[in-house]
C-alpha cells in the first residue's frame, strides 16, 4: 500500500493581521490560527488517492504544542496518523532549518510506519510565505520534486510513476516522474472536503504522536532552530507608499480634458519608448 506523508503548518491567518498605526507593529491578538490552506489541498489530494487506490496517510508538522489542533483537524478529514515534532530548540527556524527537521521526521515516519512513496507540501505558507520548505525537504530526502501542481493525473503504483500538471506563469506543464517524490500543491489541485461525523469522533479521541529532539539521537543540534538558520531578519518596517498628489486635468468638456491628458502623456518619453506613432 502507498504511504503518503502530508506536511502541514499551523499559521496565524495573516489576512486578519492588522498594523497598529501608532507604533507600526503587528497586531497579532485575536488573530485566528488555521491550517495553512495550501497544505489542506495537499492533504485532500493524499486522501483522494487513498479513496481511489488505497493508501496510508500520515500528517506531520513541526511547531509548538498548540499545533496539535491542526493535526486533529487533518485526522477529522481522514488522515491515518499525525505527528507533532516540537521542541524549544526548533524555535526561530528559517526554511533551511525547518526542512532539516521536517525531513528528519519523515525519515523517522518511514522507519515507524513503512517507506514513504509521496510527500505533499503546500505551495507556500501564509506566514513564512517562501515556498522553500518543500524543495528543501525533497532535496534532503533525495525525492523527485514537482512544484506548483494543479492536477495529479495518474499514480501508477506498479510502475512507480506519477503524472501531474504543473502550473507555470506561461502555461501548464505535463510531467511524469518516479516515486518517491514530493509535490507542492496549488489551490486549483482540488476542493477540500468537509470532515465526516466518524472523522470528527476519531479526531476528538485521537492523540498525535509527539516527538522531541530526544527522539532523534542523530539530529545535528547545529542545524536546528535559530542557530541552524542562515537567514536573519535585520529589520522590519511598514512601507510608506509614496503619495504623489499630481496634477488635476480639467477641460471644458470631456473632449478637451482627453486632449489635454494625451498632450501631457506625449510630453514625456513614453511615446518613443512604446513606439507609439503620432
Amino acid at each position: 500500500m502507498l504511504h503518503l506523508v502530508v506536511c502541514i503548518k499551523q499559521v496565524p491567518d495573516s489576512r486578519e493581521i492588522r498594523i497598529d498605526p501608532k507604533n507600526n507593529t503587528l497586531i497579532r491578538q485575536g488573530v485566528p490560527s488555521i491550517v495553512n490552506f495550501y497544505d489542506l489541498h495537499g492533504l485532500e489530494e493524499a486522501l483522494r488517492i487513498k479513496d481511489e487506490q488505497g493508501a496510508r496517510v500520515t500528517v506531520v508538522t513541526m511547531g509548538p504544542p498548540p499545533a496539535e489542533k491542526s493535526l486533529k483537524e487533518c485526522i477529522s478529514l481522514g488522515a491515518d496518523e499525525a505527528v507533532l515534532v516540537t521542541d524549544r530548540g526548533f524555535a526561530g527556524a528559517d526554511t533551511l532549518a525547518t526542512s532539516y527537521v521536517v525531513a528528519s521526521t519523515i525519515s523517522k515516519i518511514a522507519e515507524t510506519w513503512g517507506p514513504v512513496d509521496m510527500v505533499f507540501c503546500g505551495k507556500q505558507t501564509l506566514d513564512g510565505d517562501t515556498g522553500q520548505v518543500g524543495p528543501g525537504v525533497a532535496c534532503r530526502l533525495d525525492l523527485e520534486q514537482l512544484t506548483y501542481v494543479t492536477k495529479v493525473v495518474k499514480v501508477d503504483e506498479e510502475q512507480r510513476r506519477v503524472t501531474v500538471h504543473r502550473h507555470l506563469e506561461d502555461g501548464i506543464e505535463v510531467v511524469e516522474t518516479s516515486m518517491p517524490l514530493l509535490i507542492t500543491a496549488l489551490k486549483e489541485l482540488n476542493k477540500v472536503r468537509r470532515a465526516s461525523l466518524p472523522g470528527m469522533i476519531r479526531a476528538a479521541r485521537y492523540k498525535p504522536t509527539v516527538w522531541t529532539t530526544a527522539d532523534f539521537p542523530d539530529l545535528d543540534k547545529a542545524q536546528i532552530g535559530l542557530k541552524g538558520s542562515p537567514t536573519i531578519v535585520a529589520k522590519t518596517w511598514v512601507p510608506e507608499i509614496r503619495s504623489i498628489n499630481g496634477e488635476r486635468i480639467e477641460g471644458e468638456n470631456e473632449q478637451s480634458t482627453a486632449e489635454q491628458l494625451i498632450a501631457k502623456l506625449w510630453e514625456g518619453e513614453l511615446p518613443t519608448r512604446m513606439g507609439w506613432t503620432g
Binding site: L96, P135, Y148
Partner: peptide, 22 residues
C-alpha cells in the same frame, strides 16, 4: 517565478546557504 523558486530552493539546501524569497 515557478521555475526560479523551484531551482533556488533545491540549490540553497544542497549548498547549504540562506535564501530569501520573493
Amino acid at each position: 517565478t515557478a521555475t526560479g523558486r523551484d531551482l533556488a530552493g533545491a540549490i540553497a539546501t544542497h549548498l547549504p546557504t540562506g535564501l530569501t524569497a520573493d
